[in-house]
């Protein structure tokens, strides 16, 4: 039997534009998801430890193949106040989704067929980054959305005290600068697609702050800590020819 109740259903919304469907690996320690987007430039890794769920019960290893497109629609119409519960019994082909609105007591139940997802296993090596910078997640989202209205990619430059996001396109250029109190091994400058940063920043509601781990010529990491876990987004670097 598997049963997990989750209070941050907004997590689904944060990853739906990157991944259309995914295996959810359910273990007694918690739920994990690791998947690459279709263009193979971004990877989403989510870990939700058992302690973050009330209740959590998993007495055997289970892989649920879930359409995030469908899950998003279900969660979206439930509203922000709803909790989401996943249940599975001994039949691995279907699972139950239960949405509960705490304010009104309304309960919506679905029986969903588990999808057979042809998913490759990804090994992500440990990386030492030149800069690991923590900034308010709402500011990060505002900067990404604002610059992306007119421009396509953003250059990140970080020094001891400030991180600068600058961007240029046909209409001209723009930049945003933010103070930070993080440690750097040295100044850094790199370019990232704004479209993807805007996607990653949809996880803003999960956490007050976001941590950017940056080095030239290795995948960049954008991390949101959630209660008893994390949502990590990796993005492939742009490299000089």
């Amino acid at each position: 039997l598997f049963h997990a109740r989750f209070e941050q259903a907004g997590l689904v919304d944060a990853i739906k534009d990157l991944i259309q469907d995914s295996d959810f690996h359910c273990r007694d320690s918690g739920i994990a998801l690791r998947n690459m987007d279709n263009s193979q430039v971004a990877v989403v890794v989510i870990l939700l430890e058992a302690g973050g769920f009330l209740p959590y019960h998993c007495d055997r290893r289970l892989n649920l193949g879930i359409s995030l497109t469908s899950l998003t629609k279900i969660v979206h119409y439930a509203g922000d106040e709803a909790t989401l519960a996943l249940k599975a019994n001994d039949n691995p082909d279907t699972f139950n989704l239960v949405l509960e609105c705490l304010q009104t007591g309304c309960i919506i139940k679905y029986d969903i067929k588990s999808r057979d997802i042809d998913q490759e296993h990804l090994e992500i090596p440990k990386t030492d980054y030149a800069a690991t910078i923590t900034i308010p997640s709402a500011e990060f989202q505002r900067i990404c959305r604002n610059l992306s209205q007119l421009l396509e990619s953003v250059a990140n430059e970080a020094s001891e005290e400030r991180i600068k996001f600058s961007s240029s396109g046909d209409i001209g250029s723009g930049s945003a600068t933010l103070r930070h109190n993080s440690d750097l091994t040295g100044p850094i400058a790199l370019t990232i697609s704004l479209k993807y940063l805007v996607n990653f920043s949809k996880a803003t509601a999960l956490s007050y702050s976001v941590t950017l781990s940056l080095s030239s010529e290795v995948p960049q990491l954008v991390e949101y800590k959630v209660e008893s876990g994390f949502a990590r987004f990796y993005f492939a670097p742009q490299i000089g020819e």
Partner: peptide, 14 residues
Amino acid sequence: GKKQTTLGRFFTLP
């Protein structure tokens, strides 16, 4: 100019 890479060259896909 710079070219967008894919993650396949950094993360292994056994």
